[in-house]
């Protein structure tokens, strides 16, 4: 028997890349926390230890305003323009 696939639809478009950092980016690495307890602490510690152990810096730390909502695209673009690398804490 022929049925209509209940999962069918139009496939998503390719992911749009955020703005890349210029060569003269202000920072090396930025942590981005999902605002859940613990995530901020872990990212802060990673940033400190990368600077202390490997001289990687300067490092920043940002957070979503709330774990209940997605990150503001403007924040992502801002971070992408300011830093070469990001460590993102998601899902806890």
């Amino acid at each position: 028997m022929r049925i209509v696939d209940p999962t069918s639809g139009t496939a998503p478009e390719d992911t749009v890349a955020v703005v890349a950092a210029a060569d003269g980016a202000a920072g090396a690495l930025c942590g981005l926390s999902n605002s859940k307890p613990g995530a901020h602490d872990i990212l802060a510690a990673i940033g400190r230890r990368l600077a202390d152990d490997h001289g990687l810096g300067p490092n920043g730390l940002e957070a979503k305003p709330s774990a209940a909502v997605g990150a503001d695209p403007a924040l992502l673009d801002h971070l992408a323009a300011q830093y070469r690398l990001a460590v993102v804490a998601i899902g806890d």
Partner: peptide, 10 residues
Amino acid sequence: MRSILVVTSS
């Protein structure tokens, strides 16, 4: 921008 994601196993 290159990134690394830290996630919990769950």
